[in-house]
Amino acid sequence: MTITSTGLTKAAGVAAAAAGAIFIVVQINHPPMVAASVETTEWVVRSTAKAVMAALALAGITGMYLHTRRRVGWPAWLSLVGYLLFAAGYLAMFATEVIAATVLPTVVGSQPGYVNDVLVSAAGGTPAGDIGGMQTVLNLAGVGYLVGGLTFGIALFRTGILARWAAILLAVGTLGTAALAVLPEGFNRPLAVPVGIALIGLGVSLWRSLDRSPAPTAPVAPVREPAVP
């Protein structure tokens, strides 16, 4: 099996679209962010799905960056900075969801207060106690997701290679999460849907952009002039 850049780029498009679909599905009827929810099988399944989503999204945005990096225009660093921040956000998100699926359910019985504080911080609130390094990871996930998504969305819009409506939706959708600091928890799930739609749109656009690319032309053999007697 031969691995080509075209095949990898198409795989990145599929990964981004799948990540967006998972991101939307896991928001439906999401259980409340309380310690009692952590003890359920549903919590483990949803957290595992979110970890898979973060890994797929990371693969997807990597493909988008590599496919569009030469067309970002001025300033040239915008795409790279946006990608690095967004990637860091998804890496931190992957870590937190792995912890949510594998660690929190095992300690919720003995340390429900700690688990509740982690959940409060993850929802954008202020925990009552010290949650240690988890606070740093959650902060990195939040800043990377918000600032990285905004910057990367602007960079993708500037290139004009992928669907611009999806790039705008990505930028606006990730920026909109900042409003969760002042909005009730009920807004947490609906505000995630636009980003999911944006990832689907960008993933499909990444796949289709390869089909629209002009096929390379074969080199033309030089024509030999007949020798003059």
Rank of each mutant, 00 (worst) to 15 (best):
W207A: 02
E225M: 10
E42L: 09
G73H: 08
A181Q: 13
D117Y: 01
A88N: 07
F157W: 12
L183G: 14
P112W: 01
R70G: 03
G203T: 04
M1W: 04
G144R: 07
I24R: 05
V120D: 09
V220Y: 08
A100I: 01
K10M: 04
A17L: 06
A19Q: 10
G133N: 15
Y83F: 15
S213P: 09
H30T: 01
A36E: 14
H30P: 03
L183I: 15
R212W: 09
A167W: 08
I154S: 03
W207D: 04
R69P: 06
V107H: 05
L206R: 09
P32M: 06
G20M: 13
V204M: 00
T217V: 15
T159M: 14
V193D: 14
K50I: 14
K10C: 01
M93H: 12
T217R: 07
G173L: 00
A49R: 00
L162I: 10
L210M: 12
T4N: 13
A227W: 05
L156Y: 07
A54E: 01
I168V: 15
A18L: 08
D117P: 01
P31L: 15
I197T: 08
L170S: 08
K50H: 10
R71E: 14
V115M: 06
T159I: 07
V25H: 03
I131A: 00
P190I: 13
R212E: 15
G124P: 11
T177L: 03
A55N: 14
T217M: 02
T96M: 05
G186D: 11
V34E: 13
T4Y: 14
F152R: 09
A92K: 08
Y83E: 12
A21H: 08
I197G: 06
A15P: 06
G7T: 01
A92W: 04
Q135N: 00
I28N: 14
H67I: 02
S37N: 05
L66T: 05
E185H: 11
A167F: 02
V115I: 05
V107L: 04
T4F: 07
V25I: 07
A12M: 05
A92S: 06
G196Q: 04
P222I: 11
L84F: 13
I99M: 02
P222A: 06
A57S: 11
P214D: 12
S79I: 05
P127I: 03
A49K: 06
G125D: 02
V81I: 15
S209Q: 07
A12E: 05
S37A: 11
P194G: 13
S205I: 15
G82C: 10
G20A: 06
A171F: 13
T136A: 12
T136N: 11
L84C: 09
V81F: 14
Y65V: 02
M1A: 12
I24T: 01
M134F: 08
A167S: 15
A101E: 01
P226H: 11
S110W: 00
M1N: 14
A19F: 10
V72F: 01
I3N: 00
P184L: 13
R46N: 11
V195Q: 02
A35L: 02
A92Y: 00
V72K: 12
P226M: 08
R189I: 00
V137A: 04
F86H: 09
V143C: 10
T40V: 00
P190M: 15
G125R: 04
S79C: 00
S79G: 00
I28C: 15
R212Y: 10
